[in-house]
């Protein structure tokens, strides 16, 4: 079972308290009516599905109820960081440096 750190509660808790909410930092098109079918496809369906560090969203469903972001390595399932939704996207090279 994963242990996940909620950046709002500042506690590390079992996975069962959380729900996964897909890839992070995918912005909804600002002007939907001007967007092509291909851009809609990219927004709705295309995912990086990366094998390695993955930017993703989680929700502390059975706790504070809030969404937050995380970077998790999809090979080891180890979290590199979790951070609040309005924090900037952390740079991968720095995270990898830190986790060494």
């Amino acid at each position: 079972m994963l242990l996940i750190h909620c950046p709002y509660c500042n506690q590390t808790l079992p996975e069962l308290e959380f729900t996964y909410a897909g890839e992070a930092h995918i912005a909804r098109p600002a002007d939907p009516s001007s967007v092509s079918d291909e851009e809609w496809r990219d927004f709705l369906f295309i995912r990086t599905n990366v094998k390695g560090p993955h930017y993703e969203r989680w929700r502390h469903f059975h706790g504070c109820g809030r969404y937050f972001n995380a970077v998790r390595d999809t090979v080891s399932d180890r979290f590199l960081i979790t951070y609040k939704t309005d924090d900037p996207r952390p740079e991968l090279s720095k995270l990898l440096e830190k986790s060494k």
Binding site: M1, L2, E15, Y20, N49, E56, T74, V75, S76, D77
Partner: peptide, 13 residues
Amino acid sequence: DQYTSYSQRGGLP
């Protein structure tokens, strides 16, 4: 599992 992964293991819950 609820999260994407290539770990080819899966969680016990």
